[in-house]
Design a protein around this nucleic acid. Sequence first.
DNA 1: AAATGTGAAGTTGTTCACAGCT
DNA 2: AGCTGTGAACAACTTCACATTT
Lengths: 215, 215
Amino acid sequence: MASKKNTKSQRADIPRKTVYRLSIYTRCLQRLKENGIKTVSSEALAGAAGVKSPQLRKDLTYFGQFGTRGLGYDVEQLIKMISDLLGTSHLQPVVLVGVGNLGRALLSYKGFAKEGFGIVAAFDVVTERQKDKRVTQSVYSMDELKSFVSRNNVRMAILCVPPQEAQEVVNELVEAGVTGVMNFAPTVLQVPDEVTVNNVNLAIELENLSYFVGH
Amino acid sequence: MASKKNTKSQRADIPRKTVYRLSIYTRCLQRLKENGIKTVSSEALAGAAGVKSPQLRKDLTYFGQFGTRGLGYDVEQLIKMISDLLGTSHLQPVVLVGVGNLGRALLSYKGFAKEGFGIVAAFDVVTERQKDKRVTQSVYSMDELKSFVSRNNVRMAILCVPPQEAQEVVNELVEAGVTGVMNFAPTVLQVPDEVTVNNVNLAIELENLSYFVGH
DNA sequence: AAATGTGAAGTTGTTCACAGCT
DNA sequence: AGCTGTGAACAACTTCACATTT
């Protein structure tokens, strides 16, 4: 998206795009595993992921050697190594701040849970915003944000607040110990070096399409 | 986003990232205009957009020469040229397919309308899904998709259907004349060269963050 | 024979440095 | 004097070609 980023790489020297593709690879591997396939060649996996095979091989060798020449890669082993690497092998708690339209949708979005993320709590200035039967998480007041985050050792946050409030909220999050922020607010956030911000701007994404579609 | 793409560039030789940054520049310019600022230097605008100034200047010169040496760029003129270029100077009709959690949120998402896009209609296998007071658009049955799109000359679509259905739906869209698709389904879509697909995968975006945050 | 791992070549995008306007 | 426009240097990423292993 995105690109669409302001992401700094702490864990250095591995291309951001490589990390991104790793996520795509696991999804393909998962499907293979479900179909009972034990071994896959770089050619086949790359095809499924929509990349060229040398790309896939280079991506993997940033992290070590996992294949067997003449044979290919062990599906299960590759899944294991990637999910360890991405930190998705154990559930990561995430908080969401800003329960407007988009925030509410993300709270009930099944795509996150399916991939090993749990939005454990939501925060908003208006706590009554929980009036939606599909949303199961509690909506807390902003006062409780900092203590909740540090108490529960939350490292990741999803930001869906209006642009004017985004910087202020991110400051609080960082002070409380958050080091990764997925930012949906159309704002360039200022954060310390050790914090990673992943900007997702859906309007820009559409605008971008518009350019390629033409007038 | 994600970076995160499978987008082919029809209008060639201009970097995708440049087009993406153009969107960021307009947002900054808009703010300047609201504050009554008439002229801006590449240094100042780049700062606001979170890029280096030569980057900004290079981005702009792909499209022509818009600045005045010794002075800077005319705010209003730049806004005009970028929105003409991106095709956001006139309202672009967009259809949305798949009115699940995410689809519903996008239908009522104000971020799109604010930037000159109107989701004119939504489609789903279950048309009763319109039971949400915040959603103002009508939800039509999938049978009507093709005729609606071609009748109304819709060029852009937002895809929020389950992954198994994504390819089938995109085929219909393309047949009906859509040439730009914003795809939220975690599927690698197969489309003709003249069609642009912009993949947005929120789960991958989070997974990516997870890597930088660490275990 | 088949398929990985990788140095080297190629491509794309970013930054620099400064010449050239106003 | 100030700031743009841009060729040339640089950096990042991708692709190729092939030696290497099973």
